[in-house]
Design a protein around this nucleic acid. Sequence first.
DNA 1: GGTCGATAGTGGTACGTCCAACTATAACGG
DNA 2: CCGTTATAGTTGGACGTACCACTATCGACC
Lengths: 186, 186
Amino acid sequence: MPQHEPLPRDPIAEARRNWEREGWTQAAGPMAAVTSIMRAQQLLLGQADRILKPFRLTFSRYEVLALLSFAREHKMLMKKASALLQVHPTSITNAVDRLEDAGLVRREPVSTDRRAVNVALTLEGLEIVEQASRALNEQLFLTTGFEEQEVETIVAALSGFRARSGDFTAPENLPVSLPPSPPAAS
Amino acid sequence: MPQHEPLPRDPIAEARRNWEREGWTQAAGPMAAVTSIMRAQQLLLGQADRILKPFRLTFSRYEVLALLSFAREHKMLMKKASALLQVHPTSITNAVDRLEDAGLVRREPVSTDRRAVNVALTLEGLEIVEQASRALNEQLFLTTGFEEQEVETIVAALSGFRARSGDFTAPENLPVSLPPSPPAAS
DNA sequence: GGTCGATAGTGGTACGTCCAACTATAACGG
DNA sequence: CCGTTATAGTTGGACGTACCACTATCGACC
């Protein structure tokens, strides 16, 4: 499945040893973690794109569709999609351009703000995203081989990292020491 | 540091709840893990590129330099660099083009194989990569905020995943509970 | 009610990645 | 020795992302 044939040794483990030999022992672990994340992302994205190819989708376009499929009335402001998917607004413009060409979404004006644009899922878009979700679940998410415990650690550790990086506030997944109640149940 | 202001809630936790509500409970955890990895990579890469900007480097070009800095005589076949960094050969061509323009590496012919090309670090390249490594260690790897235990779990889980994906054989980092011997040592 | 700073979205550019196709060379097999 | 196949690297194109600059509109304040 990877585009190279397997290497005899793990290059990241190798890099970690190099780092330690260099005396950067404190940084070696996180370096390996960061590099592992980069490689894993590359593999996961490649795999996802391969799975989605029959649907003429890429993962980033799929993410837009999936987001809309959970939105009220299957529509959402461009701005909000950009914020929730945490990509640059131009990336949304790009994705929506292509999705619109494919007839999977529609741009709609917003009556209360003539600057803004709503993206709405079309019927065909809804069908496609349902099929694509099933394919991703079966062929990617259920086959990662991560153990339950690994999943939880990864999600928690990266959630903490994302929160620290300013991705979001209200770290709902951080250990236990939360202020008991954000007053609004929004 | 992120290009958006923080969201009030974690969109990945939200997506996980949506997945569960949809009945995809088995896939929900891995979906969250995969999505977390994708977002974390995006943040890490952006941060790395920002740190490397003063050196007129990107992370992928830095990776080439770092690889060479640990190689015998600071040189390596393009092919080998491509395999070790696990990117498509064209990505190496691209990176080496730019690094060569910047005077940080040099292409050299290989006497024993006229198809092949060696990439060699220049003196300036060696200086730059040392400074860049220090900057990355201080500003990225030492500041991820990952706890020791998280680092080890991430590295181990992703190492297992990469091995299963065919990235490399000889899973040196896998826990202990392996099927003692797949009969063929292929 | 007009000015002036924020905001929503888009166009253009730069960069990294992959893929398909291509050139040149090497290695193998008759 | 020659034809076939494999390998190393490059070129050109598609796509996703970020950044900058720009337009249009909103909103807030005097």
